[in-house]
């Protein structure tokens, strides 16, 4: 590990050449499958109704959010409960710029990402010195604080009265994407977040994140600047979430602070990663897709019991697959040992 981490810096071109050289059928299939799924989803858009496009849009949104949480919470081991702050800031940055300054969405989008990253760095430098529950609670507080600031900056944000992005006629700085447009936008966002997580996981920086997660003191002792690793991971995570918030804001047109600073966004990100399997790329992907589709199915078919059943299923999955479904399947496939009870004993007893 130390040798890897101390490895000499290589140019991007060199890294790419090495990546190409080391490709084999065995290690290329996830990327090929991912590419095939992406192309298939592009084709699928032509076959589905607009309402189903909107449902899938929310699935793609949560894929991106779960991947983002996994970078700081899964790989780095810092469970942030304040991710929704970046989401809300991204949403409000776009809304304020488009509403008050008539800035196009495409110009406002990078500003939203920068705002999210700057906020992450600003709170990350002091808060990432905390560990475990203390960090989780501190980030939760930061998100609540961010919401209240937005709520009270009435002259800029509209406060509790909400804000509207102009999407009609000549007032619209950018024509509304419509459901097909948002389907594509969120699909690309999800694909980029998965690709980014994949690249990070296999990079030197990714190993540094894992080292911080496994033993932060030991990571520091072998020369990793743990503060930089944590802050950068937090910033990358925030960038994805802020970008998602920006697209979400444009899609919603009109929203209130309570909508985009809703703590349930963060809770869902965490649950999706835990259910799927943290510290892996496939875990958040499967968790987000699975839980969003399950939630939709239960909501449509079970009426007022849907949340109860949804909660019960989450509890059961966490009890029987504490390491996450994807990691259970991966390990069980490798060992050809599929006993769920043995799995429970291994992780619980």
């Amino acid at each position: 590990m130390a040798e890897i981490l101390r490895g000499r810096a290589r140019s991007r071109q060199g890294l790419f050449r090495e990546w190409i050289r080391t490709r084999t059928p065995a290690n290329s299939w996830p990327a090929l499958v991912g590419l095939a799924v992406f192309v298939a989803m592009l084709g699928l858009q032509q076959l589905i109704e607009p309402g189903t496009q909107r449902l899938l849009t929310s699935v793609f949104l949560f894929v991106a959010l779960a991947q983002a949480w996994n970078i700081i919470g899964g790989y780095t081991g810092y469970a942030s409960f304040g991710q929704v702050a970046f989401f809300g800031l991204g949403a409000y940055t776009v809304a304020v710029l488009m509403n008050s300054y008539h800035v196009s969405f495409w110009a406002a989008l990078p500003v939203a990402v920068v705002v999210g990253v700057v906020f992450a760095v600003a709170i990350g430098v002091p808060l990432l010195r905390l560990r475990g529950h203390y960090f989780a609670i501190a980030t939760l507080g930061a998100a609540e604080g961010a919401r209240e600031v937005i709520n009270n900056l009435t002259s800029v944000t509209g406060g509790g009265g909400g804000i509207t992005i102009p999407t009609f006629g000549t007032d619209a700085p950018t024509p509304y994407f419509g459901k097909p447009g948002f389907y594509l936008a969120f699909l690309v966002l999800a694909a980029v977040s998965v690709a980014l997580a994949t690249v990070l996981a296999r990079s030197r920086f990714g190993y540094s994140m894992v080292a911080v997660h496994e033993d932060e003191d030991a990571a520091g002792a072998i020369g990793i600047n743990t503060t930089v690793v944590k802050v950068v991971a937090f910033g990358v995570s925030a960038a994805i979430v802020a970008c998602a918030g920006a697209f979400y804001a444009f899609q919603q047109i009109e929203f209130y602070p309570t909508d985009v600073f809703d703590a349930s966004f963060t809770v869902l990100m965490v649950i999706m990663v835990v259910i799927g399997g943290s510290g892996s790329v496939g875990g958040p992907l499967v968790g987000a897709v699975g839980l969003q589709l399950l939630s939709q199915f239960l909501r449509v078919n079970l009426g007022s019991f849907n949340q109860l059943i949804f909660g019960a299923i989450i509890v059961l999955v966490v009890v029987f697959f504490p390491q996450g479904v994807v990691i259970y399947v991966r390990d069980a496939w490798r060992t050809r040992h599929f006993s769920v009870l043995d799995n429970v004993r291994r992780y619980r007893l």
Partner: peptide, 21 residues
């Protein structure tokens, strides 16, 4: 009817699906 779980965005999503139907 469909449950919107008291979430505004879910209400909007449901109405889109009503449109499909």
């Amino acid at each position: 009817i469909e449950d919107d779980q008291s979430v505004a965005a879910t209400s909007a999503q449901i109405v889109d699906q009503f449109h499909d139907q």
